[in-house]
């Protein structure tokens, strides 16, 4: 097969993504449920409406990072490991479908699914939460940052699956990364400000921290120092890239 991306392969990969019920639960249901629940709990004792709005929006923007982590980092890595364990990529290669074709079509299908998940997430946010409307640049930056974060999750997921090769081990690793990101990103009850210094140092290296801690400022067009956030992207991207390189070298 010569075409890098084809209708049939994208549809096939989309069916693969949607065929995993855990992706719907953790990638769509849980972020919506958590965003609504945490917001309700957090704003219940705040009398000031503007503070309530700010808090709701901050929580909403932060929890949004769960979507790429659940659909791509977890969903894709686990599926890839399952496929490797069953020898499906080899079988596809024997039918003339090269690995890079599979990866390209998977990337496109993951992107489509993630866009749909964000669509639902934003609809739920609009209907059930009192959110601050963004400035255009804030919305675009949120989309761009999420896209880069998703690409890194894809690289990391692919690398973990290729290195671990087994479903159980891959599942264990990506679950640990997922919960670590949530804890350090301030999504599990401890905000960045309340973390010990050592935890804060780790949190600063993760892009998720900036989604939950700082993105409200970017969302509303306030002045913001992007340098620490860019550094976290560079760190996370480099770590994912090195792992991916090691996985490709090993193959």
């Amino acid at each position: 097969m010569n075409k890098m991306i084809s209708k049939y392969m994208v549809l096939y990969e989309l069916r693969n993504v949607t065929g995993n019920p855990f992706v719907h639960i953790f990638g769509v249901g849980m972020p919506i449920f958590m965003a609504i629940l945490i917001t309700r709990i957090s704003i219940s004792e705040i009398p000031d409406a503007s503070v309530m709005k700010m808090l709701s929006t901050s929580i909403f923007l932060g929890i949004g990072a769960m979507i790429p982590m659940a659909t791509i980092l977890m969903g894709y890595a686990v599926r890839q490991a399952q496929d490797l364990e069953k020898g499906i990529p080899e079988r596809m290669r024997l039918f003339g479908i090269r690995n890079r074709v599979t990866i390209c079509n998977r990337a496109v299908s993951e992107l489509i699914y993630m866009a749909a998940a964000f669509g639902l997430y934003f609809l739920a946010g609009i209907f059930f939460m009192d959110l601050q409307a963004p400035v255009l640049s804030g919305f675009v930056l949120y989309a761009v940052c999420m896209l880069f974060f998703s690409i890194m999750c894809f690289m990391l997921g692919h690398a973990v699956a290729a290195l671990a090769k087994r479903f159980s081990l891959t599942y264990c690793i990506v679950m640990m990364v997922y919960f670590a990101c949530m804890i350090f990103g301030g999504m599990m009850g401890i905000s960045y400000e309340n973390m010990p210094a050592a935890m804060q140092a780790v949190a600063r290296l993760l892009p998720v921290t900036y989604f939950s801690r700082d993105f409200y400022a970017i969302w509303t067009g306030e002045t913001y120092n992007f340098v620490p956030m860019i550094q976290s992207y560079l760190f996370f991207g480099a770590a994912s890239g090195i792992l991916l390189f090691a996985a490709l070298r090993r193959r």
């Binding site: 392969m9 069916r15 693969n16 065929g19 020898g87 499906i88 079988r91 039918f95 003339g96």
Partner: peptide, 28 residues
């Protein structure tokens, strides 16, 4: 290599969809 076809001893496919869709994707 794409002009050499092969039926391996063990052939596995995804279980997320009906065989019809796998067939259509592989054969384009």
């Amino acid at each position: 290599m794409d002009r050499i076809a092969v039926h391996m001893q063990s052939n596995e496919y995804t279980d997320s969809m009906a065989t019809k869709h796998i067939m259509e994707a592989i054969l384009q």
